[in-house]
């Protein structure tokens, strides 16, 4: 589980780094060849993918629930949600545990690369097309030399109706 420990290390470094009020920090993760990023303040921890109990009659991208130190946490596979061709579970597969809307949710990604600081001029508005991923769930595109990071608004995405994670009656 070296990927996880590396990622957790960089998380720690990030929290020690001086916080620039203008820039924001993002956790960069990969889904296949694509690079995505989420606001680091939403991230609670990173762990390996293991011991997930399947939930019957749930959408396929909801892998099930797992035990996170006594708390039952649903696990969502973003690769399935974003229609990636290759969905494999291996040693590099990690789960990013995020805190959104008073809930704890784990998202499965192919890997976590690093923590990036993006200044406002590095964040471009998201284009208004997107079939698999509506631009509603994006907070923008991060441009970093020759890399493009898709900045996911994890709050909006996970509480959206199509994710079916939240009971409509409850929220």
């Amino acid at each position: 589980m070296t990927a996880v420990s590396q990622a957790n290390n960089s998380l720690q470094q990030a929290s020690h780094a001086a916080i620039d009020t203008q820039s924001s920090e993002f956790l960069v993760f990969s889904l296949g060849e694509e690079e995505y990023a989420v606001d680091i303040l939403k991230v609670q921890e990173i762990r390996g993918y293991e011991n997930v109990t399947r939930i019957a009659n749930a959408p396929d991208f909801i892998k099930g629930v797992t035990n996170l130190r006594g708390v039952i946490v649903p696990i969502v596979d973003l690769r399935i949600k974003f229609h990636l061709d290759k969905v494999e579970y291996g040693g590099q597969t990690v789960v990013i545990v995020v805190n959104v809307a008073d809930r704890v949710v784990g998202i499965v990604v192919d890997g976590v690369s690093d923590v990036m600081t993006l200044s406002p001029d590095q964040i471009k508005p998201a284009p208004e097309f997107g079939v698999a991923l509506s631009s509603d769930y994006l907070s923008g595109l991060g441009s970093l030399d020759d890399r493009m990071l898709v900045l996911v608004d994890i709050d909006k995405l996970l509480t959206s109706e199509e994710m079916a994670l939240v009971d409509r009656t409850a929220k």
Partner: peptide, 20 residues
Amino acid sequence: TNYRKVPGISAATILGDGSV
């Protein structure tokens, strides 16, 4: 708490091996 009502399921528990 973190998910939603699941049809046919009332709640969850954690087994001895740590799985749900």
